[in-house]
Design a protein around this nucleic acid. Structure first.
Lengths: 168, 168
DNA sequence: TTAAACTTTCAGTAATTATTGAAACTTTAA
DNA sequence: TTAAAGTTTCAATAATTACTGAAAGTTTAA
């Protein structure tokens, strides 16, 4: 298999899977293409390799930069901008985890805390049940939050193995 | 605030947030409603409380049952089915993590392993880069997989605190 | 058996989200 | 300056995903 085809296969697969992660197909594809190229690429390189419109590439590239997954670069003597993906998998993971926390965890916590601050009127049994549920959820979300941070620190095999042992 | 309103607020919020988790709004709403009711509810209860069609409630309830988040129940003397949510937050988390692993982690691992099995033709530098990336990704995904399993086992404060200390 | 009570399915439609492409904008080199 | 090269924006459209409602199917009690 030629490297170009292998890259394309990776790009397509990553794109499909991206949608399962709640990430736009194009954004995932662009990221994949940058990941598997040692050189940085221009908007046009990306456009023609994965057949996307200029607007699409521009928008999603901005989003990738915002996620800290991609950096802008300039080449000597070239006017246009080039883009390169962060290649450190643990660094990538860190940024993805942070982004997902922001989108998925933080808003839930806000909701729960808001409701816990309310005075609830109803039969004692119902109120008790409702509040107990909120409390469990709140505590759980806190732990998840901490856990997500910790997961990122586990990038050394030493720590990872100690943890494995601890839980076995 | 009346308990009915508090429940509705929770249901609405959970529904909105559900979409950020890649879960259909209705499914999240139904789950939320069951979570905050001490009694099990019938399809019709759910339909009228959150204003959803019968088909929608039926379909999403089946999905919730498939995720092991909800159980069917029968009431003495009643012909229709009732539904109750699992109230154990760590058990809920376990099922959600398993489901997400199945949808989000497993397919990526397959893709990566498939590509690693290929012979790649290209310049040494490009091939080396491509394969190194796949290797990193593969190892990383393995660790993530293990980590997800472990996260679930951390439901005791004792373990959680030891881990915290270890990583601080 | 039959008919009422209840559940499931699914074609059609609505709502949401992603993508295009062209016009407007910005930067740079002559 | 100005015009060519490059970038950004965004209204229109396409693609995807979720929801409805009614018809078909199933179960149960008389």
């Amino acid at each position: 298999m030629k490297i170009e085809d292998a890259r394309l296969a990776f790009v397509q697969g990553w794109g499909t899977l991206g949608t399962a992660w709640g990430i736009p197909r194009s954004m995932a594809q662009i990221h994949a293409l940058l990941l598997c190229n040692p050189e940085s690429l221009s908007t046009e390189d990306v456009m023609e390799t994965i057949q996307l419109s200029r607007g699409n590439v521009n928008t999603n590239m901005r989003e990738l930069i915002h996620w800290n997954l991609v950096k802008k670069q300039h080449k000597l003597g070239e006017r246009k901008e080039f883009f390169a993906a962060d290649q450190e998998i643990w660094s990538i993971a860190q940024h993805i985890v942070n982004e997902r926390k922001r989108r998925e965890l933080v808003p839930v916590q806000q909701l729960v805390k808001e409701l816990r601050g309310e005075m609830i009127e109803g039969t004692p049994n119902e109120v008790k049940h409702f509040q107990a549920m909120l409390k469990d959820l709140d505590e759980f979300l806190d732990q998840m939050n901490t856990l997500a941070d910790m997961a990122i620190k586990l990038n050394s095999n030493v720590l990872f193995k100690r943890l494995l042992k601890m839980l076995s």
